[in-house]
């Protein structure tokens, strides 16, 4: 498998009026193509910061973030798709126009891309809602639209910043299955930031556990589930609670 993303000795400090905070220090890890990696850690340890670095919204203080072997910069942003906690759909755009938002920004409103967006909507059960407005959709559907909007520009790497935390529990279980299925069938690489251990265990191939600030890698857990299991089915697998407890023990020692 090829290395898609690599963090090499990344350090990041935040400057504020009162003091200087070291958010990340000596952070190194890699993510391989078509892998689903979750990042968990004590709250406020800088998980979102890692995603911001990959999306080149901020620059590392030292060290480097490599995407396909190249340092990330604004130009590489089309290779990365970012999904936030809230769906951030624009109420005044129809579902289809929301999906095409990234295309219109990247001047890609041309036929192959538009057809791709259409087929994504069709494949994932939103075709009949193309001309609906976001306010007419359920929370789960909105999150699916947000994911398809992220996929429309055909990014190599998806950054998921707690995208399931804003929906109710039942919807969350359903959306997790949906999102996992869509990411697997589109053969995308994904990095999920979460504070929910069961979410990390049910979705990922590997889980990175961070130390408290300044964040470093505390340990990495590879999860060995049967490939055919959906996230929901994983929850009833005997290995699930074993992994859950191992990760919980690691995190507990950090708090």
């Amino acid at each position: 498998m090829n290395k898609l993303l690599e963090f090499k000795n990344v350090k990041l400090t935040y400057q504020t009026k009162k003091n200087e905070t070291i958010a990340l220090e000596n952070l190194s890890f890699s993510v391989f193509e078509e892998e689903f990696v979750s990042i968990v850690g004590p709250s406020g340890c800088g998980k979102t910061t890692i995603l911001s670095l990959i999306a080149s919204l901020i620059k590392p203080t030292s060290g480097s973030v490599l995407l396909c072997g190249q340092p990330v910069k604004n130009k590489t942003s089309s290779m990365v798709g970012y999904m936030f906690q809230r769906d951030n759909l624009f109420d005044w755009r129809t579902v289809f126009k929301n999906v095409c938002l990234g295309l219109s920004i990247q001047h890609k409103l041309k036929s192959p891309y538009i057809e791709k967006s259409r087929s994504l909507l069709e494949k994932y059960g939103l075709k009949d809602f193309e001309n609906y407005y976001p306010t007419q959709l359920s929370g789960g559907m909105r999150q699916r639209v947000a994911l398809i909007r992220t996929l429309a520009t055909d990014p190599k790497l998806l950054l998921l910043d707690e995208p399931f935390s804003a929906v109710d529990f039942q919807t969350r279980l359903l959306v997790q299955d949906d999102v996992s299925y869509i990411i697997k069938s589109e053969r995308k690489t994904a990095i999920l930031v979460t504070h929910d251990i069961s979410e990390a265990v049910s979705l990922s191939d590997r889980v990175l556990i961070l130390t408290k600030r300044p964040a470093k890698i505390k340990c990495i857990k590879s999860l060995d589930f049967n490939k055919s299991l959906t996230p929901f089915q994983r929850r009833s697998d005997p290995k699930f609670s074993k992994y859950f407890n191992e990760i919980w023990e690691e995190l507990k020692s950090e708090e």
Partner: peptide, 23 residues
């Protein structure tokens, strides 16, 4: 977060203005 979304999609500040701020 909406502005951040547009930035992750590669929008410049004028695109942010016309796609988000004004509408």
């Amino acid at each position: 977060e909406k502005i951040l979304l547009l930035k992750t999609l590669g929008a410049n500040r004028f695109q942010v203005l016309f796609k988000l701020i004004l509408p």
